[in-house]
Design a protein around this nucleic acid. Structure first.
Lengths: 129, 129
DNA sequence: TATACTGTGTATAAAGATATATACAGTATA
DNA sequence: TATACTGTATATATCTTTATACACAGTATA
């Protein structure tokens, strides 16, 4: 099972947190289905170029949120997620990210039109595929 | 001298880093002019509800970038910033923030139209004043 | 059905980064 | 020269990340 996680080396955000946010997002958005056996902590750590313990912390945190179930000797599985929780997540994750982007713009004295232009530019570049 | 810095308690981004990013932004965007005497580390720490040491680290880091000059017993001043460096900063700061917002959207399987709607909504809310 | 092997998660200890309180030293100015 | 303001240095606690060694579960096979 290959899990697409993007690590940003330059970010000040802790590694375990970057992984958590993205894995949570994958589960809550339904891209990784209920019952899926996730990669072992060793395999995942190797993929992400980080320590086994860091992956373990992520699995542990998400398990305590009820998003994962782990069984020693067997592996870590994706638990069932309510569809309402799923919908709520999708929207709030994006809204929050967008808000912080607009905040940065305002802080640097961008006009509404400046931001519209930059948004369109970025959007077209990312969705050109 | 009052410096508008927004601290996000819930963010995993280290405190000193949040302050650095925003103060750097204020200097490079020209909102805090060359020669300005910044608040003392104690006053600033009190405003931000953080430790003196955290503010000192921010001043120290920005001084080593050449953005500040500090003189013991007197205070910390904003240094001169080249206008080209100023222009470059404004744009890249916003573009990077916008890119990461769009990334979050893509990760949660938003369509281009979904993102446009959310962006417009957030933009209108923030610029309603 | 023993037994060994390979896979899984677990526990402990240590190093680095981050944040704090407290005591120290330089500078302005009444 | 007092005094009240500046920045500075030291020691401490917590968080983040890692390395290493260990214990448990599944599977092949003698």
């Amino acid at each position: 099972m290959w899990i697409p996680i993007q690590i940003n080396e330059n970010s000040a955000e802790p590694l375990y947190h970057q992984i958590e946010v993205q894995l949570r997002s994958l589960i809550l958005s339904g891209q990784v289905e209920e019952g899926t056996l996730l990669p072992s902590i060793r395999e995942f750590a190797n993929d992400l170029k980080c320590s086994v313990i860091t992956v373990r912390r992520v699995y542990q945190d998400l398990e305590s949120e009820g998003l994962l179930r782990t069984k020693q000797g067997t592996g870590t599985f994706v638990a069932k997620v309510g569809s309402d929780e799923r919908d709520r997540h999708r929207r709030t994750a994006v809204v929050e990210a967008m808000e912080s982007a607009v905040d940065v713009g305002m802080q640097v004295q961008c006009t509404k039109e400046d931001l519209k232009a930059i948004f369109k530019e970025v959007l077209d570049a990312k969705y050109k595929g």
